[in-house]
Design a protein around this nucleic acid. Structure first.
Lengths: 157, 157
DNA sequence: AGGCTAGGTCTGATTGACAGACTCAGCAAC
DNA sequence: GTTGCTGAGTCTGTCAATCAGACCTAGCCT
């Protein structure tokens, strides 16, 4: 009855590491904005209501983590400024964002539905995440997924 | 050049709502434990190093949100206790967890690999998330995904 | 010179995380 | 029946993060 997981260390858990970045209160909200094409400090601040200080910190952290990069730009008649764009590491967060969106839409949306959808560039149809195993089977039942120690697992001391 | 997203309100954004639950620093780590079969307070605490108070709060919040439920149990020779199990709403977080795990494994793992994998119950092969559109196309390139206002979108005042 | 704007800093109050000690109920061993 | 153990907490004090609101600053425009 004792769960097998108890024998394994979590010190190098990649979920914990990912959540140290993504789990900060506003991080995914900032990323949602960037994925939406909102790349400038004040646009984000006005839309999200994030306090300036916090937004400054989040953006700096995301740049430091290599999820965003600061890109200089200049609009005619304005001085040089910076905007924030996704790096490849950042773009690879699409599945995370779509997964969170899917769950939120299912359980937390208003009756009139979600304010945001994501679509496929080619055919304009809605995009969702699916779970699939390496053998190509579609995994639709959450209970068909089993966790197990991976290659980097360490026994607990 | 002005992003279209600026015209739309975010007040009912389901990502923000989901992150209000999942975005607390330890929430996904707690859920990782439960998905791993670790269901008891002290087991979680010892494995994760979460402060007691915080773990108490997280568990209570997750129960209140309907992600976990408290189930009484009794081991022979012990008094009645409670353990925490996933509800259906909780089980539907598998794709979120797998997505975060996939990203973490790719960018944050130690050289020897991830300490945790997830497998398909039927064939034992590794499970990953994929993005797929309603037309059945596999979406492999992050740049092929486009956000757009959904049915519940509201114009900004 | 004065004003506007984007993108910040600075300051002080409130909230949350954290560590460590304490509590409490029930079972067990003496 | 007292003592001790164990799982699941609560209490307390410290320290860091969040938040709201005011202030600052570089460059452009009039």
């Amino acid at each position: 009855m004792r769960p097998a997981a108890l024998d394994w260390s979590v010190e190098n858990c990649t979920i914990a590491r990912a959540m140290a970045i993504l789990g900060e209160r506003w991080t995914l909200v900032v990323l949602r904005e960037v994925f939406n094409g909102v790349r400038r400090f004040d646009d984000m601040r006005v839309r999200t209501g994030i306090p300036r200080q916090v937004l400054t910190n989040r953006l700096a952290m995301l740049v430091e983590q290599g999820v965003l990069r600061r890109v200089p730009y200049r609009e005619p008649g304005s001085r040089m400024r910076h905007e924030y764009r996704l790096t490849d590491k950042g773009l690879d967060l699409w599945p995370v964002l779509v997964a969170v969106l899917g769950w939120g839409d299912r359980y937390l949306a208003d009756p009139d539905g979600s304010p945001l959808t994501v679509t496929h560039r080619d055919c304009d149809a809605e995009v969702r995440v699916a779970m699939r195993c390496a053998e190509g089977h579609e995994v639709t039942e959450p209970r068909d997924v089993l966790p197990r120690p991976g290659p980097g697992a360490r026994r607990r001391s």
